[in-house]
């Protein structure tokens, strides 16, 4: 069984994120990059499925050279090899271009499963797994809090507003997993050492048959026109409870017509 796990390097969630005043894209240089936290669950799920089915796990990432740190982390957790798509032309790519690049990198390589985290903590769109499934014409099994693989059959529990749906498909399938589906492992010292020797294939868009005009900021199908800091919230009233705190809040809620 061959599994691709897609990971993304994102700004550390504790860092203040900024848009670049020039081209209005996320300023990734000024902050530390980490593996998108939800992708750790994806890597763990891929490793568990591979372990149970004598499979192979290939890490796939699209991002600047710096994203190698995130690739190494996935390799040190136990993935076997990686494909790193880095190309100056990709800067500012939107979801359409990103899904195209990932689909082209995955297509035709015989993957049974492609696993994603359900969203990135920076862009927070949650659309790439569905878009890659659409492009590959593969089954979409997204927002899983449970994945079961039996031979060719893949079953998930898809989290819904009311509980969950049981969804089933034959592989190949594109899966996305939610937080807490598993307990991501920490890379061991041995894993970190081994990762240094694992192959990372560097790929440019030309290798994928993609033309620079199809990706990047200039090709984006939507544009950021302007941005500004949100106006700070007006300072509120803070009181100390001296036995009447609940009543005081009720008075405030009455004045605001909530009750």
């Amino acid at each position: 069984m061959k599994i691709a796990v897609c990971v993304k390097q994102v700004p550390d969630t504790w860092a203040e994120k900024k848009l670049d005043g020039g081209d209005k894209t996320l300023d990734r240089e000024s902050v530390d990059g980490v593996m998108n936290e939800l992708d750790e669950y994806a890597v763990e799920e891929a490793l568990q499925i591979a372990e149970a089915n004598s499979g192979e796990v290939v890490v796939v990432t699209m991002g600047p050279d710096k994203a190698t740190e995130t690739v190494r982390k996935a390799l040190s957790m136990g993935a076997d090899s990686a494909i790193h798509i880095a190309d100056a032309a990709l800067h500012g790519s939107d979801a359409l271009a990103t899904s195209l690049v990932l689909a082209k990198a995955i297509e035709g390589k015989g993957f049974d499963l492609v696993i994603f985290g359900s969203e990135s903590t920076d862009a927070r769109m949650s659309v790439i797994p569905a878009m890659v499934a659409e492009r590959l014409g593969a089954a979409q099994l997204t927002f899983a809090n449970k994945v079961e693989v039996t031979g060719e059959t893949v079953k998930i529990q898809r989290v819904t507003d009311y509980g969950y749906d049981e969804v089933e498909a034959a592989s190949p399938a594109v899966i996305s997993v939610v937080e807490k589906i598993n307990e991501p492992r920490y890379p061991s010292f041995k894993g970190i050492m081994a990762a240094k020797k694992k192959p990372i294939e560097a790929v440019g868009i030309g290798d994928l048959g993609i033309d620079a005009g199809q990706v990047g900021l200039a090709a984006a199908a939507s544009q950021v026109e302007s941005f500004e800091s949100a106006p700070p919230r007006a300072a509120g009233t803070v009181v100390t409870d001296e036995g009447q705190g609940g009543v005081q809040i009720a008075d405030y809620l009455s004045a605001q017509k909530f009750i």
């Binding site: 509120g236 803070v238 100390t240 609940g246 009543v247 009720a250 009750i259």
Partner: peptide, 26 residues
Amino acid sequence: FEIADYGVVGDLFNVVPQLTEEVTKR
């Protein structure tokens, strides 16, 4: 508290039940 429109510094186990009672009453 930095983003609160109205905040109470206190033990929630005192404040919240009192608030609930007051809301129900009103």
